[in-house]
Design a protein around this nucleic acid. Structure first.
Length: 574
RNA sequence: CGGGGCGUAGCGCAGUCUGGUAGCGCACCUGGUUUGGGACCAGGGUGUCGGAGGUUCGAAUCCUCUCGCCCCGACCA
């Protein structure tokens, strides 16, 4: 492609609404433009990146015996009513009516459609296993889209669905996808971790997320520094200790703590460590209040609480609700004398000598003995895993990371096949529901996370495998015929060798071309300047490196093509 | 959905408090000079001041309503 005729509108200034690297650089580099909140145009550079990611995904899934299909984006409500999700799914499901008034939704996921397709055609165990995937635009009406492509409302996703005769066969399908995913993300040049995850609203028994490690990630994960255990903090197992997390003994004593509301303020006032305090949180579970107790320095794992209470709707109580439920203002709530259900973190079992709110403005208790002074409904692990804690599976220690979820594999069991009657006949002629799995890859999110992981102040540093172009050629003096000719010649030769090349033939000054090249992030840059051209050389520079090296004009195209091929091979085999 | 903020030229912003005929930088167009890390000179304004009402002789500016967007939180995969 010649830059002079390309549609690559780059921007010098940072768009006002972008605050993460991938968003800033994709807009500035002319990859995407916003059309509405969380909805974007993909311009030529963006489209090229998307295509390359899609192709990697296709290759690896086809290798794993999955077959590509395309299902509709508009889905009739009847299908979603069969599984009950038409009612269950919240406002993030975009619903609309056609001209006859029939209900439809824009598919955020396609279990119902794929199950409907398979149940109509597949009747025998002989036709299984089956794994179908599509690459499709999805829509989820997120409350708060953010970070450009990191969390859009409309996004491109690969979703695959496996159908098997039983759990053992389904486990094989699951494993195949798991391995395919590892290859996909490796080939995309991403530093990622497969982590054990919560199965969420979709249901099912086994689940792994593929998390790209990046500081701007929205997910918190912990990974053991010794074994290969890694998990979303919502799911991470914790090592159970024999000794209570708070010890000290003593009598229950009321003390004045004027103005102290937060744990930090109370600790400051009473000169105690946060590890000696008990934090009391009020939650509303399906409209009923309950109290959660955690050691002062811990944080809550809401997923665990949701599981324990079995509540379908669970949220932190508003200040007014909390006061009504406990009789105390937030900041002074404590477990002593409460009559509503109290769920205490397992770590607090046997706790003595603790500091907790006294249920009255400006008052706290010291010397709290939970067994003696409170009525605890249940002790259960409720705290979130944190950096530095002991691994539950070995003697190692957890490290914590921020992650961007780019893939998710679920084992679904029969939660969709059963209600929808997706069955097959086994060898004995008996009808059984198919055992399913579902597997997602965020195509657009891969693009964003690759940038989060690979950029500097000047712009993107694409991995070779997903870059919009592999090489960019910059003739620096567009008033010098030798330079122009050398650029055109190299451009033609590289194209002939099958290299994706962008020739910056604009009549811009060298500085502008360098800046745009850095911003766009093509991994390999060839500068042609009259200075070095006089000595028979071009200048080759990797975007990730600081310095260029001289490259003889003679045989340059072959040398560049080889360098590109080597770079690609590195990603494929690592 | 709760809290905060912003909508003025393609982009980034000033002007709003204190009402008086719309401005800066970048980009863009014309001409010239330049050419190794976002050049310079001269000329050119491309705008429903988010929208709708209202107050006023007069509204970007004041009032009411409304739409959109961003940030923090809650929520979600």
């Amino acid at each position: 492609m010649r830059f002079s005729t390309a549609f690559i509108p780059t921007l010098k200034e940072v768009p006002a609404d972008a605050n993460v690297a991938s968003h800033v650089f994709m807009v500035r580099g002319g990859y995407i433009r916003k059309v509405a909140a969380g909805i974007y145009n993909f311009m030529p550079l963006g489209m090229r990146v998307i295509s390359r990611i899609e192709n990697i995904v296709r290759e690896e899934l086809n290798k794993a015996d999955a077959q590509e299909v395309l299902m509709p984006a508009s889905i009739p409500a009847e299908l979603w009513q069969e599984t009950g999700r038409w009612q269950k799914y919240g406002p993030e499901l975009l619903r609309f009516k056609d001209r006859k008034g029939s209900d439809f939704c824009f598919g955020p996921t396609h279990e119902e459609v794929v199950v409907d397709m398979v149940r109509r055609e597949t009747k025998s165990y002989r036709e299984l296993p089956l794994n179908l995937y599509q690459i499709q635009t999805k829509f989820r009406d997120e409350m708060r889209p953010r970070g450009g492509l990191m969390r859009g409302r409309e996004f491109i996703m690969k979703d695959a669905y496996s159908f098997d005769v039983d759990i053992d066969a389904a486990a094989i399908s699951y494993k195949k996808m798991y391995e395919a995913y590892k290859r996909i993300f490796t080939r995309c040049g991403l530093d990622f971790r497969p982590v054990e995850a919560d199965t969420g609203a979709i249901g099912g028994s086994m689940s792994h997320e593929f998390q790209v490690l990046a500081e701007t990630g929205e997910d918190k994960i912990v990974a053991c520094d010794t074994c290969d255990y890694a998990a979303n903090v919502e799911e991470a197992a914790l090592r159970v200790s024999d000794t209570p997390g708070i010890e000290g003994g003593g009598e229950l004593t009321r003390v004045e703590t004027p103005g102290a509301k937060t744990i930090a303020e109370v600790c400051d006032f009473l000169k105690v460590d946060a590890k000696q305090t008990i934090k009391s949180l009020v939650f509303m579970a399906d409209g009923e209040p309950l109290v959660v107790l955690l050691r002062g320095d811990r944080s809550l794992n809401e997923i665990a609480l949701k599981k324990v209470t079995g509540a379908t709707e669970l949220f932190k109580a508003r200040d007014g609700q909390a006061k009504k439920a406990t009789g105390a203002p937030v900041g002074s709530i404590g477990p002593v004398g409460l009559s509503i259900p109290i769920y205490a973190d397992l770590e607090l079992k046997g706790a003595t000598g603790a500091v907790a709110g006294a249920g009255e403005e400006g008052m706290h208790y010291t010397g709290v003995d939970l067994e003696r002074d409170c009525k605890i409904t249940q002790y259960v692990t409720l705290r979130a895993a944190e950096e530095g804690e002991g691994c539950a599976r070995c003697e190692g220690t957890y490290q914590s990371y921020q992650g961007i979820e780019v893939g998710h594999v679920f084992s679904l069991g029969t939660v969709y096949s059963e209600p929808m009657g997706c069955t097959y006949l086994d060898e004995g002629g008996k009808s059984k529901p198919m055992v399913m799995g579902c597997y997602g890859v965020g195509i657009t999110r891969i693009a964003a996370s690759a940038i989060e992981q690979n950029h500097d102040d000047g712009g993107i540093i694409w991995p070779m495998s997903i870059a919009p172009y592999e090489v960019t050629v910059l003739p620096l003096q567009m008033n010098d015929d030798d330079v122009i000719d050398a650029g055109n010649k190299l451009y033609a030769e590289l194209k002939a060798l099958g290299v994706d090349v962008l020739l910056d033939d604009r009549k811009e000054r060298p500085g502008a071309k360098f800046k745009d090249a850095d911003l766009i992030g093509v991994p390999l840059r060839i500068a042609i300047g009259k200075r070095s051209l006089g000595e028979g050389n071009l200048e080759m520079k990797w975007r990730r490196d600081a310095d260029a090296t001289a490259l003889p004009v003679e045989g340059a195209a072959e040398a560049i093509a080889n360098a590109v091929a080597e770079e690609k091979a590195k990603l494929a085999n690592s």
